[in-house]
Amino acid sequence: MTAFAPSDEAQARRELARQVTLVELLDRILDKGVVISGEITLAVADIDLVEVGLRALIASVDRLERLRPENADV
């Protein structure tokens, strides 16, 4: 699986793309695909992992933005 970020902000975009890729994976692998009535034994109780992932992503975007002036490569 690869992520391709269209713009040039290489370092920050790569990190952002990595995190988005994880969010996309969670969104798919836990919620999409063929729906088959097998036994599902996920140990996630009522935690919404996709929501957790998105919150982490948003927090990380903010963090990246704060770090941007201190990092010449970003």
Partner: peptide, 30 residues
């Protein structure tokens, strides 16, 4: 498809587009 996404992002100045893939067709199987 990638090139079009890159071009579109440059045109949409207020939003970033993050493309990922290729994925197995999770969203298109049911």
């Amino acid at each position: 498809f990638r090139r079009e996404a890159c071009e579109l992002e440059r045109e949409l100045n207020d939003v970033a587009l993050i493309c990922t893939g290729p994925w197995p067709p999770y969203n298109f199987v049911d």
